[in-house]
Every structure is written in structure tokens, then in C-alpha cells.
Amino acid sequence: MKSLVFVSGPSGSGKTTLLRMITSNRLPQQGTVLLPPHLRVVHVSSVPAFVKSMGLYANLVFGVVPSPDYPIYANQTRVLKILERLKLHQSWVWQSTLEDSADAVPQLSAEEELADGEEEPEGQLAIEDMPDTPIPSEEAWYNRMSRSEAKRLHLARAFIASPEVLVLHSPLSDLDKELAQDLAVLLREFVEERGIEMDPKTKHRRRRRTVFFSEKHSKELEEMADFTCALGDPLDIKLTARDKSREAGASWWGCSGP
């Protein structure tokens, strides 16, 4: 079941706890949380984190383990398109990603690259085609990031991995209004298209995507989401659906008080 689930509520209402239970980072004191073992679940915290011993590109494709699907998810062209969608194509991030990518992608056979019926990735983009924004060699990439850039790179990594279940803590915070709106559109697209910047011809072969994300209460987000789980007092947890006919279908994950 594809769904965009908005978890809202004031500070201290339990949004973080609920999302941690979905990703098994925290066990409930009562009851059980069950997730189908065949679904990949990616948790994106509100605080960006990176592996400083690795290059920027390697960080972006981190977790997309080398496999027949590696070129589909982590090829340079798709990574750069996702960065562009997050408005990172006019900064130093773009060229740094290009410079790092040549050594980060494993060399696989043609048979592996065409596995699962996906088309071969488009040609690599050359550094000379990009804006001339050289990076000072004495300054590490992780020291150059602004708070907004770090947040968007953190989110780009999740979109690149393209899990079946994506759990996001406050993804719109620390972003200006325009960037927050762009990201909201990407979350909707991620659910509807079963991934970002994926081949539309293979959409029917990909599993459905579900996104859980937390933010402060917002009428706009409530109208965008398929379901809203509003937290308040522990005895006052309310589930609503944008399409009322779908409320009964939410029982697979549920949202109720003790």
C-alpha cells in the first residue's frame, strides 16, 4: 500500500518515539511493531551525519551495496539529477560529486548493469561540462557544507537508496519556504512514482513506497499527505485520511492510543 503519512503534534508529543519504533530503533513498552522482512526501511534523522573518511559521492551512495541493482540506483547521472531536484546543482557540491564519483562506483559487467530489465544508465557527465567552481584542496568537503546543504545531502542519500519504507524526522525544518515546498513535492513523487528519477518504464516492477515524516502541525501538509497521525495527549491520538474511503485501509500500520 503506497502512502504518505504525516505525523504531527507539539514538541514532546511522541513523534520521534513513534518513528523510532517504526524503524525498530526503539521497542514499545507495550504491544508489538511488525515490519515485513522483505521491505527495506531507511531512517533519516533530523541531524545530518556523514562518514568523513569517505568522499562526498561515496557518502551519497552509502548503503546501496554493490549488486546488480547498484548501477540503477547509484549511477552518476541519477545521483546528479536528484541533487539538481534538491537545488544543489549550482554550488560546489555538484563538482565535488563529479570528482568523487569516478572512483566510487564499482566496475560491473554489462550483464550486471542490465539486470532486472532496467535500461543501461545514460552516459556519464563530464567535469568540463559543469560550472567552474574549483574546491580548495586544503578544505575538506564536509567543512564546506552550510546547514541547508548538509540537510539536503542527507535527504538526497535517502532518495538515492530508494527504500520501500522511508522514515523522516523533521525533513522540512532548517529549509527556506521554497526549498521546503520543493521537498514536499519530492516526497509526493517518491510515493506516486515508486522512487525519484527512476525509469518510468519499470515502475510496475518496483515495490510500492511509503513515507512517514514528522513536522509541526500544518494544514498544507495535512492536505498533501494521504494520512495524518496527530499526536497530543497519550490518550488523544487521531488518525485521519485525505481520502476518507482509505481510512479503513490504514489498519496495516495503525495509529491508536493505549
Rank of each mutant, 00 (worst) to 15 (best):
E193K: 07
A161K: 02
T210V: 15
A115Y: 07
S96G: 15
L80Y: 00
E189D: 14
F213C: 09
E192D: 04
A110V: 10
K151T: 03
P131C: 07
E120M: 13
G117C: 02
H89M: 07
D199M: 07
E192M: 03
E84K: 15
D116W: 14
E189F: 05
A184L: 15
S101W: 00
G123V: 04
S170T: 14
A126I: 12
A104M: 05
T202S: 10
Y70A: 13
K81D: 04
Q107M: 13
H204C: 09
H154S: 10
R194L: 06
K216H: 15
E197N: 06
F213W: 11
P136H: 11
E149I: 00
E215D: 15
N75C: 13
V105A: 07
A102T: 03
M145E: 03
Y142K: 12
L83D: 00
K203E: 13
L187K: 03
E189P: 01
S91Q: 09
V165S: 00
P136W: 05
E192P: 00
E178I: 13
L153V: 01
W92E: 07
K201G: 08
P134A: 10
H217P: 11
R78P: 00
Q95P: 01
E111P: 06
D132Y: 11
A161N: 06
K177M: 08
Q76M: 14
V167Y: 13
A104R: 00
H204N: 09
E164Y: 10
A115M: 06
L80W: 05
E84N: 08
Q107P: 08
I82C: 06
W92A: 12
T210W: 04
A161I: 11
H154T: 02
K201I: 00
L187F: 06
R206A: 06
D176V: 12
E138K: 01
N75H: 09
W141A: 00
A180G: 14
L175F: 03
A184K: 04
D199T: 00
E149T: 10
E113S: 12
I72L: 14
E84M: 11
T133L: 13
V211M: 05
R209C: 15
V167A: 12
A184C: 13
I135D: 06
R188S: 15
V191E: 04
A126M: 10
A184W: 12
E149R: 05
E139F: 06
E193R: 08
A180W: 03
L166P: 07
